[in-house]
Design a protein around this nucleic acid. Sequence first.
DNA 1: CTTGCCTCTACAGTCGCTGTAGACTGTATC
DNA 2: GATACAGTCTACAGCGACTGTAGAGGCAAG
Lengths: 150, 150
Amino acid sequence: MSIIMKPMTIGRLSKAANVKITTIRYYESVGLMGTPDRSESGQRLYGSLDVERLSFIRHARELGFPMDDIRTLIELQTHPSSDCAVVNKIAQNQLGAVRKRLGQLAALERELERMVTSCEGGKVASCQVMASINDHSECSSGNHERIKPL
Amino acid sequence: MSIIMKPMTIGRLSKAANVKITTIRYYESVGLMGTPDRSESGQRLYGSLDVERLSFIRHARELGFPMDDIRTLIELQTHPSSDCAVVNKIAQNQLGAVRKRLGQLAALERELERMVTSCEGGKVASCQVMASINDHSECSSGNHERIKPL
DNA sequence: CTTGCCTCTACAGTCGCTGTAGACTGTATC
DNA sequence: GATACAGTCTACAGCGACTGTAGAGGCAAG
């Protein structure tokens, strides 16, 4: 027998899953969260399953998975008897993406390190940092990839 | 005596600095590039100084500097006799941001590694990857930072 | 009953661009 | 000169993943 629990409003769900209210509504609008029941006055009502689902989404987001992948993962969760190869593939792609980004950032770190250590104060005109940014001789010459935020 | 060079159109500037035409116009619209001269028919005309400035912007972007910082850096370039402490501060902040991001991504890498190595195939219901995403016991508990794309 | 938080919808803004539509211009070839 | 084609123009919408705002209504405690 299932225990029927008192449903909670969006604010309680927000605290339970540590996801902002506006973000929950956004997830609903893009189909990650499904349309919840409503109270008579129109307020959204959630149960403990929603807490789990939202926590799943949050953790997946923290791991950097894009929304589309998360959609796929949730879809797969509703078919527990299907093969988990797809799940594994998504996770491995993600790991590859993280490693690639780590490589890029390590290169940035080296260049920025070189810049700041070569600066010995003084005027902008003779600043090594400025010179370094101006000198685009090396590094990412034929690179047509989009620049990503930190 | 300065050598007066034939001005170039936006397409040539684009190739010279390896920045897309639309991006150049965008930089102009947000005040990073300044309003260029125009030909009789209204086409933008650039000189070699513009190539340098645009290359500077591109390299700064590749290093991950946000637009506001780049604006400041360009501003400082036009006052070559001012102190380069501000420049150095910006670069050091950037280095700090890169290192912080490296730390975050390294943590992600470890967790994803753990996930994919623990998956031994089978059904979604028993998939360790799924279980890992569901288990949000550890990792970033009281973290209110915005999740960043890779 | 009032106070004060909670929730609702709808839409604009964030960052750093990219893509598109539709019109005009410049150049090369025939 | 005609034609073809590449280049350029403006203006605006769209991306991802949200965040913030305005203005209205709901709900529980004192």
